[in-house]
Design a protein around this nucleic acid. Sequence first.
DNA 1: CTGACGTATCGACATCTGTCAATATATCGG
DNA 2: CCGATATATTGACAGATGTCGATACGTCAG
Lengths: 110, 110
Amino acid sequence: MKLIQDLDACCTPLLSSPLSQDAAETLAAALQALADPARLRLLSLIAACPGSEACGCDLTAPIGLSQPTVSHHLKVLHEAGLLERERRGKWVYFRVRPEPLASLRSALSA
Amino acid sequence: MKLIQDLDACCTPLLSSPLSQDAAETLAAALQALADPARLRLLSLIAACPGSEACGCDLTAPIGLSQPTVSHHLKVLHEAGLLERERRGKWVYFRVRPEPLASLRSALSA
DNA sequence: CTGACGTATCGACATCTGTCAATATATCGG
DNA sequence: CCGATATATTGACAGATGTCGATACGTCAG
């Protein structure tokens, strides 16, 4: 399993030099985490909340998927480093981490 | 099937407002086209060639996959608008189109 | 026309992925 | 401790995806 943490380290801009197999796998894993409509909507939904953070309990209804499915997508985003996760009592709050998105943007440049 | 052409039209920056289901599907389709190690390597390989263009016949060996598989990936990239395709005699040349990558970068911004 | 070569398509297959219902785990209020 | 509520995990399943060998298609040289 590729670690998405080191996107910066691994990924010179896509169009500037040929990617190694390893770099390609790392970058692909990061893109894969984003390449799902439900996950994109979750990210944008959370980003639109005050403080760029939202309680998990407020995310199931607007996405229109079952609670386990939403939980699954949140886990994928969290493991990709795109979301911070914080437990407060019975609730779990998620906050968008903008850094990996910035890394992705520069990896997709010339 | 989502048309990736209208990425600009559809996709306000991810973190600026909640995505509609339609916009999310379009953006996800574009990301999906990129989210594969072989395709990323093909893109970067082609971009590194003089004129950002390469003959298909020179792409199979460095990628290390069968000819049908490489042809399949090139088709995916072409249908996503990421590659131009031009036949010259028995050869087919591919050129990187930077525009959709730029659209993706801005879609992944705040 | 024929053979050679580059490319595309087809069919098959294993694997991955998104989804849900059922169930487990965690936390709190009383 | 108990019940209620939020969240996570499990198991199952259908559909998508990456891969290959075999084969078809296009184009050119002779």
